[in-house]
């Protein structure tokens, strides 16, 4: 039954995409209608869900990215980092682009709690730091408790929001140069090639290394997929369902002492607080 629904969903998604002509190339191009798209084919569920969906859609509009094109590029890039496949939903379906938009418009995006006083040095030393731990993710005391993402020294005058705007536009430039096309219009494997060039540290940007932008993008894509849905990603806890993550609960005493894996339906922070 579940599979049947999924098939139906996929089919209607394809048709919707085709009809609207939104996507050229192999992937959902992360359009402005990313959120709408998802609600569209979940409409056959019950009314309660439908209302919830509507509310969620109302919270999905760009408040950081002014240009639609930047947002579409972002959406397409996150979808390559976490693509929709047999494993489950991809970044767009999980609401990751809107999560990132919201995060960047707040204190994280403006580096409110970071030391941003001058002077900033743009020398070989600061360049090297950004390329430093490309192979090893978090190491030392945090290896066990923090998301496995790279942590280079942050030595740029740009805040995280600035890095995104510049990085996404640079991504389009690289796409044009390599494939004579916008990032959103590339085939999936071409998009991967562009992202890989950033990941490899081959792309230069102004005031920051391309790899630093990529690290940030990868980290925030994971955050958007798997943080509590209250932040706008992990839509309907689909990310947690995919990971079999049960969410915040009163107690895991029983599970911790069990030798069998105990699978539970996820609960959100909202459930926990109510």
């Amino acid at each position: 039954m579940a599979d049947e629904n999924k098939e139906k969903t996929d089919e209607s998604r394809r048709r919707f995409i085709k009809n609207t002509g939104m996507v050229a190339g192999g992937v959902v191009g992360g359009s402005l209608f990313g959120g709408l798209l998802t609600s569209q084919f979940q409409d056959d569920s019950d009314t309660q869900t439908k209302n919830k969906e509507t509310t969620q859609s109302l919270q999905e509009a760009r408040t950081f990215f002014s240009r639609k094109e930047d947002f579409e590029t972002l959406a397409a890039a996150t979808e390559r980092i976490l693509p929709k496949d047999d494993e489950g939903p991809g970044a767009i379906e999980l609401g990751v682009p809107f999560f990132i938009d919201k995060q960047l418009s707040g204190s994280w995006g403006t580096n409110a709690k970071a030391y941003m006083k001058d002077p900033f040095y743009q020398n070989r030393q600061t360049q090297e730091y950004q390329h430093k731990d490309t192979q090893q993710n978090k190491s030392g005391p945090n290896t066990s408790t923090q998301a496995p993402s790279r942590t280079p020294r942050y030595q740029t005058r740009l805040n995280r929001g600035d890095i995104y705007i510049q990085g996404l536009r640079r991504m389009n430039e690289v796409s044009q140069k390599k494939f004579d096309n916008k990032f959103t219009d590339l085939e999936a494997d071409q998009q991967d090639e562009v992202l890989q060039a950033f990941d490899n540290g081959e792309i230069n940007m102004k005031g920051v290394a391309g790899i630093t932008f990529f690290n940030l993008l990868r980290q925030m894509t994971l955050e958007g997929a798997f943080s509590d849905p209250v932040y706008g990603g992990n839509r309907n806890m689909m990310g947690w369902k995919m990971k079999e993550y049960p969410g915040p609960r009163m107690s895991y005493t029983k599970q911790v002492t069990s030798d069998e894996f105990v699978k539970m339906e996820p609960k959100s922070l909202r459930d926990y607080q109510s």
């Binding site: 390559r80 980092i81 976490l82 693509p83 496949d85 494993e87 489950g88 066990s144 408790t145 923090q146 998301a147 496995p148 991967d192 992202l195 990941d199 990868r218 894509t221 994971l222 955050e223 798997f226 943080s227 992990n234 990310g239 947690w240 995919m242 990971k243 993550y245 895991y252 911790v256």
Partner: peptide
């Protein structure tokens, strides 16, 4: 065993890619 949140629990073997479908499969 600190207990892991869903963002943290994305560790994959070193020879696995760090993003894309293969990463997602291994991370899950």
């Amino acid at each position: 065993q600190y207990g892991e949140g869903a963002i943290t629990s994305n560790r994959v073997p070193k020879d696995s890619p760090n993003w894309g479908s293969e990463f997602k499969k291994n991370a899950n």
